[in-house]
Design a protein around this nucleic acid. Structure first.
Ligand code: MN
Ligand code: MN
Ligand code: ZN
Ligand code: ZN
Lengths: 145, 145
DNA sequence: TTATATTTGCAACATAATTGCATTAAAATG
DNA sequence: CATTTTAATGCAATTATGTTGCAAATATAA
């Protein structure tokens, strides 16, 4: 299995982005988690390794290139997850459901759950669907029982 | 047809809220629009008729009582719409789809479009679904043609 | 009319996000 | 390897959104 850093370096080069410490660090953090990661968490973990502004710019660049996608939780907080595949600078393919746990507040990408097509009133042209489910995640509903 | 102010006064009394100028004004503005209204817009329209903090508190009280519901748009901005009916302090019944127009940025409550039930991975317990569609609203897709 | 309970306005604070600009550093070039 | 070019970073300042505590004002009940 190829080592992470090498893989991330390729990813950056492929997208015309320079290999810098803050970018590698963000990729490292995001890939090490099983759920989407909030901006405040990233900011806290990165500490003074990178300036706040740099973090915002890294996230923005990654989103534009289709490396990560942003999910707003029920409070409006920005959360980021690595795109599984097929996403590019030209188009995101993250039309999967997101699950926001009321207990642990994690946001899971339910890649396997597709959003059902929708019948809207005449005249409306749907381009994109964004579905967030709230409730208890598998881990939290276990603990409750 | 009963006049608005009288209707709003009853609504406030019914919910144990005092009849105050900022509250009546918020109801007046929201009811006069065909789409959800953003917090920044409300703040701008109300100007110095009411303090920013008062506006936030009015919106919070209304939401708690089930008079209005909040919709976050794709940018994370808070938008508010009057609840059609059946909503109360105890439970919101606003499980309808919201449509966020990419062109005029309005948010429409598609009261007639229900969110289809969802099959999620084992263990996850869905409590609430929140679906926002983006694209062109009827009015904007007309203009384009 | 007076008492009370709620609501408001103000000041201060917190957090998220953006912009301009000078400095630094990565990668391309020779 | 040294130099040039271009992209990225850090810092300071600013804007937007939202919250909290508290005193003053006001709607309503008594
Ligand atoms: Mn996702
Ligand atoms: Mn609605
Ligand atoms: Zn959970
Ligand atoms: Zn529109």
């Amino acid at each position: 299995m190829e080592d992470n850093t090498a893989r991330f370096e390729k990813l950056l080069v492929k997208n015309g982005l320079k290999r810098t410490a803050p970018r590698l660090q963000v990729l490292e953090i995001l890939s090490g988690r099983d759920s989407a990661t909030s901006q405040p968490y990233l900011e806290q973990v990165m500490g003074k390794d990178a300036d706040r502004v740099t973090l915002y710019r890294v996230l923005q660049a990654f989103e534009e290139k289709g490396i990560i996608h942003k999910v707003l939780d029920q409070q409006g907080t920005a959360n980021y997850a690595i795109c599984s595949d097929g996403c590019s600078a030209h188009e995101h393919h993250d039309e999967h459901v997101h699950f926001n746990c009321d207990n642990c507040h994690k946001i899971y990408c339910l890649d396997t759950v597709k959003i059902p097509a929708l019948k809207v009133p005449a005249g409306f042209k749907v381009d994109h669907l964004n579905l967030i489910a709230t409730g208890l995640c598998a881990s939290c509903s276990d603990k409750v029982n």
